[in-house]
Simulated assay, not measured.
Amino acid sequence: MPKAIRVHEYGGPEVMRYEDVAVGAPGPGQIRVRQTAIGVNFIDIYFRSGLYKAPQLPFTPGNEGAGAVVAVGEGVTGFKPGDRVAYGSVSGAYAEEVVIDARMVVPVPDGIDDETAAAMMLKGLTTQYLLRRTYKVAPGDTILFHAAAGGVGLIATQWAKHLGATVIGTVGTPDKAELAKANGCDHVILYRDEDFAARVKEITGGKGCAVVYDGVGQATYPASLDCLRPFGLFVSFGSASGPIEDFNIGLLAQKGSLYATRPTLFTHVGDRATLEAMAEDLFSVVRSGAVKIPVHTRAKLADAPKVHADLAGRQTTGATVMSP
């Protein structure tokens, strides 16, 4: 019987159990995938801890993976057994085998291995909607990306640089600063040691940035707003340090008629044609070599509790991939 990680109650990493699970045949519009690589993301911690609620308990965490199709359900025309596929916005990925809706899956092109695909779907598609859809980064833009050495950060800074932007990144340690510089950051700010808003003002000659991408949350708000030029866009797409609890819309007026948005990947990929276009854009920049997907940590699925502890403790950079 296939194995999976199951969460029976919300809590710390220790609530994740490695158990046998029954995996049924795919229903209409579904496919069954035998996974070879599973991506790990901060959102997995939010679901495990109960910050985000799963539809029911127990549940299997995880949103991202890659593998081979082993069976297709009624009405599925785009996939057949043996096809290599990947996905980045489906629940239940921490498993050896999954049954998922075919409309949420994309074929993996030649030249991209399964590990890279699993490491880049959620983080890469997130980067795609941030840089190409939420605010269209253009040559000459100056942008600020928080947690620039994280999983999304390292993809985003490379891609933004490729698009012609001046990229400012914040990181927590000197080692992460070196990594961020090697991956597209023109300027790196150690946010624990420096006032990042003051440094951004200095770097931009007082002008501020066109856009701030903030996946950190509580620890960087409201200072992120002070990094923006008039009419700039504050993009809050995660809460690694805890959620922003007292968002004051009046600050947007005071700080320069700013815009703010809280997008999610799930909304963007809700439309199949949009998902296909986003994936095509992502695969093309990766295959061209313009964006490299850094997998820095590899682990076994059974070791998911330790993986979560390291991720939450800011011990990781780049992507973490688990194998069944």
Rank of each mutant, 00 (worst) to 15 (best):
T170E: 08
V171Q: 01
G172L: 00
T173E: 06
T173G: 09
T173I: 06
K176R: 10
K176P: 08
A177N: 02
A177T: 00
E178A: 15
E178H: 14
L179S: 02
L179P: 03
L179A: 08
A180F: 00
A182P: 09
A182Q: 12
V188G: 00
V188H: 06
I189L: 05
I189A: 06
Y191N: 03
Y191T: 09
R192T: 08
D193E: 15
A198N: 14
R199H: 14
R199V: 12
V200N: 11
K201G: 11
E202C: 13
I203W: 10
G205F: 10
G206M: 14
G206T: 14
G208L: 11
C209H: 10
C209Q: 09
A210L: 13
Y213R: 00
Y213F: 11
Y213H: 08
D214A: 00
D214M: 01
D214S: 02
G215Q: 00
V216R: 01
V216P: 08
G217H: 01
Q218I: 05
A219M: 04
A219H: 06
A219I: 02
Y221A: 04
P222H: 01
S224K: 05
L225F: 06
L225T: 07
D226T: 06
D226F: 07
D226K: 11
C227D: 00
L228Q: 03
L228E: 02
P230T: 04
P230L: 07
P230H: 05
F231D: 13
G232W: 00
L233S: 06
L233K: 07
